[in-house]
Amino acid sequence: MIVPGVVSVTFRQLAATEVVELTAAAGLSAISWAGDVHVPLGELGTARAVGAATTASGLSIEGYASYFDAGDSEPAVFDDVLRTAVALGAPTIRVWAGKRTPEDSDAAHRARVVSELVRCAELAASEGVRVAVEFHVHTLTKTLDSAVKLFAEAGHENLVPYWQPRELPEVAECLTEVRALLPSVTAAHVFSWGADGFDERLPLDARPDLWQPVLAELAADGVTRHALLEFVVDDDPAVFRRDAATLLSWLG
């Protein structure tokens, strides 16, 4: 089953309560809360209030987007990340696999990232929270081969991947990536870009050729996963509502 939701950082300009209202009105079911704007790191009172507002509106909390860079952030920071996620009621913490690409990372850096991911996964498991690594071009998950190797090296059941397409995504390549990450992939960030990538955001319905088969692949085994809208054209709530309607129509 695919649960439709949104990444709250899509609307940096809105208060958390406004994001809740907009998400619920659009007919979506879940929110991934951003740790750099709506639920700041270490602000436990804010985290509790945002979590309560989310669930009171009938929405679920998909996770806490921490922006913690495993292997590059100060390790002690993850303690605050975990406390904030628990206060929020988030079942998942999103992190990055360091700040270097596979091409720029030597063996020592890669080993440090893997070790830190394992440490974070173990700490989170003690609180019933899992750790998800974003599939991101500026990290060790830039390429599929590097990402698969990373998860194999970590070998921790509490460490899972998030997937998102890169700029200029090809459908066959995206399906190959998703299939390689199944069944452990738990969420996909859903958006459509033009030839200029991040600088050319498109309405979601510009890429049914990409998203309909990807979503079908993610749903095929019946495991619950999230499809999270992000990168809305002009950060416009009206466009978001149309994108949400498109996503819901694709999910049937």
Rank of each mutant, 00 (worst) to 15 (best):
I2L: 13
V3G: 05
P4E: 11
V7L: 13
S8T: 10
S8R: 06
S8F: 13
S8D: 03
V9G: 04
V9E: 12
T10L: 11
F11R: 01
F11S: 12
V20Y: 04
E21N: 08
A24V: 10
A24K: 13
S32Q: 01
S32T: 00
A34L: 00
G35T: 04
D36K: 01
D36F: 08
H38T: 02
V39R: 05
V39G: 08
G42Y: 10
L44P: 15
L44W: 09
G45R: 10
T46C: 15
A47W: 13
G51Y: 10
G51F: 14
A52K: 12
T55R: 07
A56T: 08
A56W: 06
G58R: 02
L59N: 02
L59S: 08
L59R: 08
I61C: 04
A65H: 03
S66A: 08
Y67I: 01
F68L: 09
D72H: 14
E74H: 07
D80R: 15
D80A: 14
V81S: 09
V81H: 09
G89V: 10
A90H: 12
I93R: 12
I93M: 15
R94I: 03
W96S: 09
G98R: 09
P102R: 04
E103K: 05
S105Q: 07
A107P: 00
A108Y: 10
R110C: 00
R112D: 01
V113I: 01
S115Y: 00
E116W: 03
L117D: 05
V118L: 09
R119I: 06
C120N: 07
A121Y: 03
A121S: 09
A125Y: 09
G128M: 10
R130D: 05
R130V: 12
A132S: 15
V133H: 11
H136I: 09
V137Q: 15
L140T: 06
K142F: 04
T143H: 03
L144R: 13
D145S: 04
D145L: 04
S146N: 00
A147K: 01
L150Q: 11
F151P: 06
A152Q: 12
A154S: 02
A154M: 07
H156A: 00
H156W: 10
E157K: 12
P161V: 05
Y162H: 08
Q164I: 02
R166V: 02
P169G: 03
V171G: 10
V171P: 14
A172S: 08
E177W: 05
E177A: 12
V178E: 04
R179P: 00
G194H: 03
D196V: 05
G197C: 15
D199S: 14
D199Q: 15
D199W: 11
P203T: 05
R207A: 13
D209P: 14
Q212T: 11
Q212R: 12
Q212H: 03
P213Y: 13
A216I: 09
A216R: 06
A219E: 14
A219C: 06
V223H: 13
H226T: 01
L228C: 11
F231D: 11
V233Y: 03
V233D: 13
D235Y: 14
P237H: 01
A238I: 15
A238C: 12
A238H: 14
V239S: 15
F240V: 03
R241N: 07
A245P: 01
T246Y: 09
T246G: 01
L247I: 05
L251V: 02
L251H: 07
G252W: 01
